[in-house]
Amino acid sequence: MTDKLLEIDHLTVRFKGARTIHAINDLSLSLGEGETLALLGESGSGKSVTLKALLRLLPPKRTEIEGDIRVGGTDILRLSGRSLQRYRGGDVSMVFQEPALALDPVYTVGAQIAETVMRHKGVSRSEAMEVALDMLKRVKIPSPERRLQNYPHELSGGMRQRVMIALALACRPRLLLADEPTTALDATVQIQILLLLRELQKEFGMGVIFVTHDIGVAVEISERIAVMYAGQIVEEGTTREIIKDPRHPYTRGLLAANLHDVARGERLAAIPGAPPALETRPASCSFAPRCALAGPDCRAGLPPVVTPAPRRRVACLRADEAVPAE
């Protein structure tokens, strides 16, 4: 298939060490050109590991990766040397959660953006600086000419995240990976950054994978949502489908735990227990120990993947059962 920007097939990621951690277990996912997908999950669900695998940022000595990742038809797990360098930051780039850590403190923001452009586009420093200035304008940084000469510590959190975005988009990637880019920001700044990303996505027409633990953020940014639990995608669909018609008991639990419109004093329908430790590869439904609907069949083997609609899937035996009274 060539119209797919990204195809992940049966990806498995294990971390070796004193203990083995089965971080990603048989994950498949596809993304079309210009699509925005939110990977939604809690800590340890494997959403950030998926992004890092996509950019080949996982330490090779301690990581075992199986499966296939194709971006625009190229098998990126086989890239090395120059072609890997071109891929990272050229075709695909990433925005991290903590811009203060991701930016280099000893270079001005202009120099950092320009360096990326010179590397990937082979242009001169002055041309690259013009691109940097243009990018700062596009991410709506006030007085961009002056800001080019600023060091990261001279900028506020929201401004630094805008610089991160400018840096990531400077080489016009086809795919942008965003790892909780608004989590560290205040509410009034978070919404500005989300709207900016939405606008730039339309303008540049790139595909976006947006990792978040916040359903509210996912709804604001994405057309599609994939819900992750214990290294697997348990449910995927359009944002509307996931919000209005969640099928997997875990997705339903997450939506209830968001407390949107919960009356005061009402008892919260909390999901009991905690996520599994992932020290063994799951042989049955990972959510079954916390699931109110689980039966012996859920613990006997991996759940089937039900596809109620095109590009909609739910990994649950009970996906078709009536929603319990709320």
Binding site: A187, T188, Q190, I191, L194, L195, D214, I215, G216, V217, V219, E220, T238, T239, R240, I243, K244, N258, H260
Partner: peptide, 13 residues
């Protein structure tokens, strides 16, 4: 600034 939680009625400004 709170997310709208409504895919049909997202925050615009």
């Amino acid at each position: 600034a709170m997310p709208s939680m409504d895919p049909d009625n997202r925050t615009e400004e």
